[in-house]
């Protein structure tokens, strides 16, 4: 009967004491909120195509910029972290989550000054995304270019 006092298997045995993760509900929330954020993006894109001189190809830039602006403002108003707690990956994966990670880090370190606080910490969380993006893109680009050259 000394199951839980077994130090070696403690980590495994306490699992039954942990609150159950509702995979379905969490997944549904992420799916719906993530989908809605993408639909907002679609609406913004349609807006730029209809009212400004953008086409399907070029409208992506102002759309992403607008989404980032919205996310930054929601972060400033203290709303995005609430959405994040509710939606999980639904608000983490869209580009708005990227903007939130930048703005929240900058905002958090405001008290340490503009240079050492805001500017230094701006990429505290988002830096890893840019590093992995650039390194992977460079590697894949190198491989593809080499393959193209060998074939071509």
């Amino acid at each position: 009967m000394t199951r839980l006092n077994d130090v070696k298997n403690y980590k495994k045995n306490i699992k039954s004491y942990h609150p159950k993760t509702n995979y379905f509900l969490n997944g549904l929330k992420a799916f719906v909120i993530g989908g809605l954020i993408c639909d907002l993006g679609e609406a913004v894109q349609k807006f730029y195509i209809t009212f400004f001189d953008f086409n399907e190809k070029t409208a992506g830039d102002p759309t992403v910029a607008t989404m980032i602006l919205i996310a930054s403002l929601l972060t400033g108003f203290g709303v995005y972290d609430k959405i994040g707690q509710f939606a999980g990956a639904g608000s983490l994966i869209p580009v708005t989550g990227f903007a939130n990670s930048i703005t929240s880090a900058a905002l958090e370190h405001k008290s340490e000054g503009i240079v050492l606080g805001i500017a230094t910490n701006l990429f505290k969380l988002a830096g890893s995304v840019i590093v992995f993006g650039v390194v992977s893109a460079a590697i894949f680009g190198l491989i593809r270019l080499t393959v193209n050259n060998l074939l071509g």
């Binding site: 995979y23 992420a30 909120i33 989908g35 809605l36 679609e42 990956a89 639904g90």
Partner: peptide
């Protein structure tokens, strides 16, 4: 847009949970 965007986020949630 809803379905594909939602699906990508759903994959993220599965990795999280």
């Amino acid at each position: 847009a809803f379905l594909v965007g939602g699906l990508i986020c759903l994959i993220g949630q599965i990795l999280l949970d």
